[in-house]
Design a protein around this nucleic acid. Structure first.
Length: 900
RNA sequence: AGGCCCGUAGCUCAGUUGGUUAGAGCGCUACCUUGACACGGUAGAGGUCUGGGGUUCGAGUCCCCACGGGCCUACCA
């Protein structure tokens, strides 16, 4: 039967089929009761609002590679998918959606709004998980989780109440980061710092009863409306005499005290600082120390409030202008200087964050941070790359309390109820009917929700059934590994570690691999909102998901950010095409061979894999010995690379093997064998080819799941089998490598390349067959080569090859020599001896340099006494070879010079 | 302000504990439409590893300084 196989690899034709197959067959459903070592990984839940971006593509590629790899190696494997309700993002998306329809969400009311978000989630919230299916991620979809599902909410509430009962959660009025656009408080981590060009306004505050002025410097003049003091350093001679006096706050005509506090920097500005406790973190602390008034002069949405007097109602930036103008008019601006300073930006709305006094829920972090630090110190959690450990420690050691509440409607509502009669607080798992303290039924639940990261922090155990001791929890917790971006080390990783240890007594994962970020050519982080991102979905469509995966993996060196380009994708696509065509070669030739009357079963015996490499009457072909050893070397390399998250190295090894060894040499070499009239020989060749190809496919499968699944199914030995994903992964053999195969075939490769190089230098017609002579120094190798003569003749495009028993004189024809062999093409047309001489001279120079440096080193007593034996031996061996080569080159050159 | 990372071939980047003539992909040059593959084949050119100093028998690799680029943390008004 003739097989239909397209001439070029067309991923669009095969990917959707396997993506569906994997999902429908529930191929990756985990079984908590299955035997074997466990590999479990939970997904960093993407936002429900999201769609797959290039960062996910990288992350999910890495996760899926390791997941498939472990599964194939026989681990009880769970890759648990899910999404995050993403409070602020989702609420913003839906609010905007409503606005587009002319609906103000405030008017809908909370309940109605929440219903709409759920509806929206049901309709649009599975885009990313659908995309994950279509790119073939080997998740267990039966265990998909959502951070705001009833089950997860139950866990969140349990955790909140326990923390409250333990005194780790408290409610307090203090200075927080407020976003006037999102209308919510933010945690420190959600505030980005940016250097901005601004001004330093020097404002003259009249000292009461003296006619003098005290000049303060500020970057935010509008906040002066809320000033309740001016502070100077207690030892500042310039101002000592003023401490205890008062200034008259301009524009507000309020008398405020001059205080002394050593937090003041005498060097900065004028050395006198206005104090606005309600709008600046420093001032707030100082205010509390000195029991100053805290006057909030702004509204939620960044306008001035009634406390701002004449400025009430103005936008904060407008107010700044007006304040400055008015001060100028009164002659109270002493000077204005340019000043670059960092300001806080809301990560979502990009507006300037306003520090503000507000009553919020906080989580005490220090007690939880300590065990989290210890766990990493003791190595219970491995952080990769290691240099991130220090960042982790640094942040953990300086940790500050976490602002938990958010003024949103979408999220886990805080399980706290306030007694309206006497302000008692009831925190409970189940909604209470009355105040726990006074019994009043006049209670109301806190209207805020929890920071989204609070529920994400529980993800590794909430998804596995905690607080019940479920089978999943028992088997899969702690998870084996977490793969996520280093940009959320604090947001998420650190918090999971703290929560995990606190609640389960165990670390949530044994290792964290922090992957790179994908950047644009100009070094920016790729971002959809900035329009600088490449769209992985479109690119997958164009180049193939496998190509994308392979490309990303090949670039994913730990600790290095990735700059992706279409060039690189094309190169990965070409690799996929190469494999496709290797398969095509197999099948086209198989058809021919079958046509000559061979039964497929003979070639595709089920044990084909197990017994490979096959021999012909006990005799191993050198090329087979070589190829299977190369395969073993590759499997070894891939294993050690993946064990240490060096995806790029694994990818490179496989690429090298598949293209360089398998396609360029093996296939070329065995071509005649496959149609060998000696049927027995041909069958051996076919079995080895099938076996090697299938092994290579299995090696590649975690990287390119679609292509390998497709081709694997077409191999006769896999007829009727379920999936390559459930097949075994090639393990590096226990037995030692047979180095002689590797070395002997490598020698052949060198000979063939030397022949081709000579031909190329001679500008020989590529089809012109010429006679050549070969001498090989090593007797064993010479015998091996004699048996491989036909191959050399074919690949070197020779008419005949004479293998001599003696070294060759460096005369006549065109030659190449190494320490191991001499090869000559006895053909002298077209030879430009001047070019040959130049080449020889250049090579001699290089060789002399190499030899001299080695001689110098080896002649150095200190080197000999201190360098390891291995290095010295190696150097000596190389030196000996190079001396031989040099002598040959010199002989050759002088011969040529004599001739001319 | 503190910390971290990077600067290697025209481009994008590898280079695990310092050790033998520094690698890959793309690009480039020449030749080749050969029965798997032009998304291809064959051969080749091209870096002395940003600069300077140091440690060492030996440095792309370790240390210091400078220059250039990036990131993170941070309450300098």
């Amino acid at each position: 039967m003739a097989r239909e196989i397209a001439k070029a690899y067309e991923p669009q034709q095969i990917e959707p089929r396997w993506a569906d197959f994997w999902v429908k067959e529930e191929l990756f459903k985990a079984d908590a009761n299955a035997p074997g070592p466990v590999f479990s990984i939970v997904i960093p839940p993407p936002n429900v609002t999201g769609s797959l971006h290039i960062g996910h593509m990288l992350e999910h590629t890495e996760i899926d590679i390791l997941t498939r790899w472990h599964r194939m190696r026989g681990y009880n494997t769970l890759y648990l998918p899910g999404t995050d309700h993403a409070g602020i993002s989702t609420q913003r998306v839906v609010v905007k959606h409503l606005m587009d329809q002319g609906i103000d969400y405030h008017k809908l009311g909370r309940e109605e709004f929440e219903k709409l978000v759920w509806k929206w989630k049901a309709e649009a919230g599975s885009e990313i998980t659908q995309q994950m299916r279509s790119i073939g991620e080997s998740c267990d979809w039966s265990r998909e989780r959502f951070t705001l599902s009833p089950e997860m909410s139950h866990v969140v509430r349990e955790v909140f109440v326990r923390l409250y009962e333990e005194g780790l959660i408290y409610r307090e009025k203090r200075l927080v980061n407020w976003c006037p656009v999102c209308l919510t408080v933010l945690s420190d981590l959600e505030v980005a710092h940016e250097e901005r060009q601004g001004y330093l306004w020097h404002i003259k505050y009249p000292v009461v009863g003296s006619g003098q002025f005290l000049v303060v410097a500020t970057t935010r003049p509008e906040t002066m409306l809320g000033d309740t003091a001016v502070a100077v350093h207690p030892e500042d001679e310039r101002y000592k005499h003023l401490v205890g006096k008062k200034v008259l706050l301009p524009l507000m005509n309020r008398e405020i005290p001059i205080i002394a506090d050593d937090m003041v920097d005498r060097e900065f500005g004028t050395g006198a600082v206005k104090i606005t406790p309600a709008h600046d973190p420093n001032d707030f602390e100082m205010g509390r120390r000195h029991k100053l008034l805290e006057i909030d002069v702004m509204t939620d949405d960044g306008h001035m409030n009634a406390n701002a007097g004449a400025y009430a109602g103005l936008d904060r930036f407008e107010a700044r202008k007006r304040v400055v103008e008015d001060l100028k008019a009164q002659g109270l601006i002493e000077k204005i200087s340019e000043h670059t300073h960092p300001i806080g930006i809301c990560e979502r709305s990009k507006t300037i964050v306003e520090p503000r006094i507000s009553k919020q829920w906080f989580c005490r972090m220090k007690p939880m941070a300590e065990p989290a630090i210890a766990a990493v110190e003791r190595g219970e959690i491995q952080i990769v790359p290691e240099n991130r450990r220090e960042e982790y420690f640094n942040w953990m050691r300086n940790i500050r309390d976490w602002t938990l509440s958010r003024q949103l409607w979408w999220g886990h509502r805080i399980p706290a109820w306030y007694c309206k009669e006497n302000k008692h607080v009831t925190v409970a798992r189940e909604a209470p009917t009355k105040c726990a303290t006074c019994g009043s039924t006049n209670i109301e639940q806190d209207s805020d929700v929890l920071d989204t990261w609070f529920s994400s922090g529980l993800w590794p155990f909430s998804t596995l059934g905690w607080p019940e001791n479920t089978a999943d929890f028992k088997t899969y917790y702690p998870t084996t590994l977490l793969i996520t971006g280093y940009d959320i080390l604090f947001f998420w990783v650190a918090r999971m570690v703290m929560m995990g240890i606190h609640f389960t007594g165990k670390v949530p994962f044994r290792a964290v691999y922090l992957h790179s970020l994908v950047r644009t050519g100009s070094g920016e982080k790729m971002s959809k909102s900035k329009g600088t991102g490449l769209d992985p979905v479109a690119l997958n469509q164009q180049y193939g998901t496998d190509a994308m995966r392979f490309c990303l993996a090949s670039m994913a060196a730990p600790g290095t950010d990735i700059v992706l380009s279409e060039d690189k994708l094309a190169s990965a696509r070409n690799f996929a095409n190469k494999i496709w065509n290797a398969a095509r070669f197999l099948f086209v030739n198989l058809d021919k061979f079958e046509a000559s009357g061979t039964k497929l079963e003979e070639l595709a015996a089920p044990e084909v894999r197990a017994k490979a490499p096959y021999t012909y009457r006990g005799e191993m072909a050198l090329v087979d010995g070589w190829l299977f050893n190369r395969l073993a070397v590759t499997a070894r390399g891939v294993k050690s690379a993946l064990e240490s998250y060096r995806f790029h190295e694994a990818g490179h090894d496989i690429y090298q093997f598949f293209w360089g060894d398998f396609c360029d040499w093996y296939i070329e070499w065995i071509k005649p064998e496959l149609q060998n009239p000696d049927r027995e020989r041909a069958v051996v060749a076919w079995r080895n080819l099938f076996s090697a190809f299938a092994t290579a496919l299995r090696l590649l499968h975690p990287f390119m799941p679609f292509l390998t699944e497709e081709l694997w199914h077409q191999l006769p030995q896999n007829a009727g089998a379920k999936s390559i994903a459930l097949d075994t992964y090639p393990q590096p053999g226990e037995e030692r490598l047979h180095l002689e195969y590797l070395m002997q075939f490598q020698l052949i490769q060198e000979v063939v390349v030397a022949l081709r190089t000579i031909r190329s230098d001679m500008k020989l017609d590529p089809k012109k067959r010429v006679a050549a002579e070969l001498f090989v120094w090593d007797g064993l190798a010479r015998d091996a080569i004699r048996r491989s003569q036909d191959g050399i003749v074919r690949l070197g495009i020779l008419s005949q090859l004479t293998i001599t028993e003696k070294p060759m004189a460096q005369v006549g024809g065109m030659m190449r020599s190494t320490a191991q062999f001499d090869v000559r093409i006895a053909y002298s047309d077209n030879v430009d001896m001047a070019v040959e001489k130049t080449r020889l001279k250049k090579e001699i120079e290089g060789m002399q340099r190499a030899i001299e440096s080695k001689e110098r080193q080896l002649g150095d007593e200190t080197f000999r006494s201190r360098a390891p034996e291995k290095i010295i031996k190696g150097l000596e061996a190389t030196l000996a070879e190079q001396r031989i080569e040099l002598r040959k080159l010199q002989d050759r050159l002088s011969q040529l010079e004599k001739d001319s």
